[in-house]
């Protein structure tokens, strides 16, 4: 009986696809070696949290996954990152197309100084996802519903996005990222500029988003990592120290540095 149960669990883990696979990733900012030998497999339809002290490279690594580091002149990347088995640093891959597939939400809510509608419609318009206005309306509504903000803004879609509260702005940004139908959603400390209520709204949203997307979230809050993620990776000084089920990291860490960090002795 016990054995059968155990087997089923094994199977389920085995069935989960590997969405993103990184091998021996190195990143340099000028002469500064920011990421050292990071290899990690991130699963589909899972929330993966990156934790670690400031400056440990977790955001840098996150930005490698959608090639946002390309926009920084002095950044240089080595190694291999694959999404669905395809090397995203291959010459044939267009970083612009890649970023439509790998959405990103930033630390500080950054709605464009446009209307709420135009904020969400921006991505779909650029990528030609809608045939006509009606379809675009539908995409915007779906995205706003997924961002759990539709009910609050449906009557004022023409109002500027910058006029919303911080939590609403961040959910608008998530809706904006979702609108381009990404497969992966990267979140760089999405709650650090928000108050506790807005934070819990965004966390609920992240929990729902994992049904459709592979979500990677960088966070400074270990409680948040424990609450929302299924997998956790601990970064320290540019190294990936430990990567495992969230529960295991927080209850039974293998590495002494991880233990020191989650118990508050370093970081």
């Amino acid at each position: 009986m016990y054995d059968a149960d155990h087997n089923r669990t094994e199977n389920r883990v085995g069935q989960t696809d590997i969405k993103i696979s990184a091998k021996d990733v190195q990143v340099y900012y000028g002469t500064n070696h920011a990421i050292k030998d990071v290899s990690v497999d991130i699963q589909d339809k899972t929330v993966t949290a990156f934790i670690g002290p400031s400056g440990c490279g977790k955001s840098t690594f996150l930005r490698c996954i959608n090639r946002m580091n390309d926009t920084i002149d002095i950044a240089r990347m080595e190694g291999l990152i694959e999404i669905d088995g395809e090397n995203i640093y291959d010459k044939r891959v267009d970083p612009v197309q890649l970023r439509a597939k790998v959405g990103m939400v930033f630390q500080k809510p950054n709605p464009f100084p446009k209307s709420i509608y135009d904020n969400v419609a921006y991505g779909p318009k650029i990528h030609g996802l809608a045939k006509n206005k009606a379809e675009l309306d539908e995409i915007v509504e779906t995205a706003l519903r997924r961002g759990a903000i539709w009910d609050e803004v449906k009557d004022r879609l023409d109002a500027p996005g910058t006029g919303l509260s911080g939590g609403q702005q961040q959910r608008l940004c998530i809706a904006r990222a979702v609108a381009t139908e990404p497969e992966v959603l990267l979140m760089d400390e999405p709650c650090s500029a928000l108050d506790p209520i807005a934070t819990s709204q965004v966390e609920e949203l992240i929990d729902e988003l994992k049904q459709n997307y592979s979500v990677v979230i960088v966070t400074h809050s270990m409680q948040q990592a424990a609450r929302v993620s299924q997998k956790t990776a601990f970064f320290h000084l540019g190294n990936l120290v430990e990567y495992d089920d969230t529960e295991k990291i927080f209850t039974n860490p293998q590495d002494s540095r991880t233990e020191s960090y989650i118990t508050g002795r370093i970081g």
Binding site: M68, K101, F112, I126, A177
Partner: peptide
């Protein structure tokens, strides 16, 4: 942050300049 937001959605540089 405006530029990052736009690039993060898969906009090219000139689209970002023109529209954001």
């Amino acid at each position: 942050a405006m530029r990052d937001g736009s690039y993060g959605l898969g906009a090219t540089q000139s689209e970002t300049i023109k529209q954001v």
